[in-house]
Design a protein around this nucleic acid. Sequence first.
DNA 1: TAGTGGTCTAGACCACTCG
DNA 2: GAGTGGTCTAGACCACTAA
Lengths: 240, 240
Amino acid sequence: MTIAGGGPLYAQVRDLVIERIHRGEWKPGEPIPSEIRLARDLSVSQGTVRKAIGELVADNVLVRRQGKGTYVANHDSYRALFHFFHVVADRGERALPESRAHSKGQKRATREEAAALSLQSGETVIRVERVRSLGGSDIIAETISVPARLFPGLQRLPVAGVPNTLYELYEREHGITIHRAEERLKAVRPGSRIAQLLGVDRDEPLLRIERVAYTLDGKPVEWRVSYCNTARHHYANSIT
Amino acid sequence: MTIAGGGPLYAQVRDLVIERIHRGEWKPGEPIPSEIRLARDLSVSQGTVRKAIGELVADNVLVRRQGKGTYVANHDSYRALFHFFHVVADRGERALPESRAHSKGQKRATREEAAALSLQSGETVIRVERVRSLGGSDIIAETISVPARLFPGLQRLPVAGVPNTLYELYEREHGITIHRAEERLKAVRPGSRIAQLLGVDRDEPLLRIERVAYTLDGKPVEWRVSYCNTARHHYANSIT
DNA sequence: TAGTGGTCTAGACCACTCG
DNA sequence: GAGTGGTCTAGACCACTAA
């Protein structure tokens, strides 16, 4: 272990752990070897392994459970709900939305999609359109685009089979873990199609949320544009 | 040091450091004692001090500078720009806005202000209204409310003297450090006053940003409602 | 009781800053 | 060269989990 590329030992250990997770050697929800075991295998001290793991825990890649072990984080509904979904009712509890996909297809990437996802010109994307509701009201209309080449088999999934929490699907079926995302928000007037889907007037202001989602190794893999009716809901953000 | 209240030693050290900063014993921009010095004074090992300081660095309370020392973080324009100000031009560099305050007064808190700032009924607030511009265009109209009791002397500041980066003023003049904030975003139609201030039509959708800002010890000290013209700008958010 | 993560110590050496 | 933070080690003991 002391021979590998530059940087401190703990950083090399950390990168090795990331590498093994990324290669699928250690899968989401499963435990990784104990700190003592890893230290012995890599010929470093437990403290060094501990520092490496500590960084990955802070970064939501691993989860420690005292007395049991250290696990690869898996992105269940709870994480999806509190981490990536920021639309909340003005009054009432935070809740996971219902989803109803109404369109799904494989197309050549538009210029916007190609730019957001760093695609070659002419690459194909799988595009899903759906409406999400909270407390029975349709609140969000969104279009989701992913590179077809990264999601083999997804094109054969029927529209009705598109799950509510897509990031779980990406992880479970395609081994792709969404790790971070960048969002851009604007207030806009809806086009006629969006207005119809949400049942609002053409002059009702909507919150437009554009999101690019990235994997653990920093590659963009999903582009999403959501139009949100914020009459009785809002987008919540914590700055820490 | 081994006698104090519950919890691990490093947590007690961490809380003690927070306490000394909060009491003004160690001020923003100044160095705190070295790790070795602290360890000796508190009769703990350097490793324990190091862990305590590490948490505070991760939390943006302290800043480490190798070879020099550990400093209490100070919220200069740079931090204000990249940490708390999220409105960015669609094209072009990230930039700090210009500000022009046009109203300032001391009033009884409205119900909304009292709720946001946990005020007693009848308490007074200082209220500032201003317009912020980016690249020469007026982009944001906002109202800022703070409890008068926490900002003595602020009421005597003339409107023209309201600085661009208020959080620096809070810290420098009143010893109040803004540590975190909660924001709620909506798309709305502007009222006539806001429309006039920003020079937009009454049916132009605006992004309404409501913010409550908190001190290091978790008390709300500022309430801010901003209306933002997002025709050529957007609100940027990173989810990590 | 065995195995895991969590805390704490003591000491070594390295990298950086500054006088 | 003295002082600071940064890395690494070795070992001890505690707290929690599960068989």
